[in-house]
Design a binder for these strands. Structure first.
Lengths: 179, 179
DNA sequence: TTTTCCATGTAACTCGTTACATGATTTC
DNA sequence: GAAATCATGTAACGAGTTACATGGAAAA
């Protein structure tokens, strides 16, 4: 439901048509959500059918008419509900990269270290990109900080893992058992 | 491709039938992956068609025959490839909960704090559950540590956010702009 | 004997993505 | 007149989930 929440939240600030919404999300929200155009259009349709938003044609100049959306009273209530739901809950995050880690012992330590260093580089690149984002006003700044927090932790964890592989003194975790 | 990697990795250790694989994953890997039965069966079918694994009937007692799978030479090569790919890459994590944060300023501060504290409680519960997991041997331990690392960071970030809301001294980030 | 566990699936559905289609308008 | 950008979609597909169907075997 984050997608609906996002669209409602944006339409609450001002009426917009699909293209505007897509552009805004791409340019400003890409840090935290990846919402493609067809998905957005489909969602707007669905929400209009549910009565959360209403649609009307707008003409500007001699351009073809655009579908502009406006949040309804019902939509406002949904926004309030979804916002509270989203803020109060915590969604478990899964790391696909952990599967590889589960089979780390199947590789010679030297190669494992090499591969993890590649992962580290990728992370570092992401981190620098996040650091380079010019400071946004308002809540967006919070989200960028969240990202920094997270990426820094990931790097620290990876480093500790690489470290462990470098000195397998205390009984290298072998192919012993995964049970 | 993590799912394929996981199944191949398990079949590498011993031949198994679908039910065994599902059980093992549920009991031991639920921390890092959520693979439902129908998905696993479908994946096994697909991999058998691709020649990564081969299937044969096994009979035990007077039970109905089971489809037991064995990794092939080709499957072993895929495993090696997928493992390296997985270890070297880093997948960007998205936090659906950030969308709510983006609209935090739409709520009275007191309520925002209350909701975030609920989120904190949920996180804390997860963290304690992760801490309570009895130490596993081998690589599984690494994944549990990863989870701990991550959850602890999330809590710290949330705390810093709640803190910020508690003292809006330095110009509370208003509904100013999200642009 | 009824419930639980073993064992394998199918069918329908949801959600989201990619690739494609269309056409008008502004800019070079 | 060509290219970019504005604007809206559709169609096909893919991945994964839920709910359901089936049936034998073991345990209560």
């Amino acid at each position: 439901m984050e997608r609906e929440l996002l669209l409602l939240g944006l339409l609450r600030q001002s009426n917009m048509h699909g293209y505007q919404l897509n552009e805004f999300i791409e340019q400003n929200m890409s840090v935290c959500i990846d919402l493609k155009k067809p998905t957005a259009y489909a969602l707007l349709d669905k929400m209009a059918q549910q009565g959360w938003i209403r649609e009307f044609q707008t003409q500007s100049g001699n351009r073809p008419p655009r579908r502009t959306y406006q949040i309804t009273e019902q939509g406002e209530q949904q926004f309030q509900r979804l916002l509270r739901e989203n803020l109060a809950a915590h969604d478990t995050v899964r790391f696909p990269g952990d599967i590889g880690v589960a089979f780390l012992s199947e590789l010679p330590a030297a190669e494992a270290i090499l591969l993890l260093k590649q992962r580290r580089d990728a992370l570092q690149t992401d981190l620098e990109a996040a650091r380079a984002v010019p400071p946004h006003g308002g809540s967006l700044q919070l989200i960028i900080e969240h990202r920094l927090y997270h990426l820094e932790t990931e790097i620290r964890w990876l480093d500790s893992l690489i470290d462990k592989l470098n000195r397998p003194s205390t009984e290298s975790f072998g192919s012993s058992q995964m049970k």
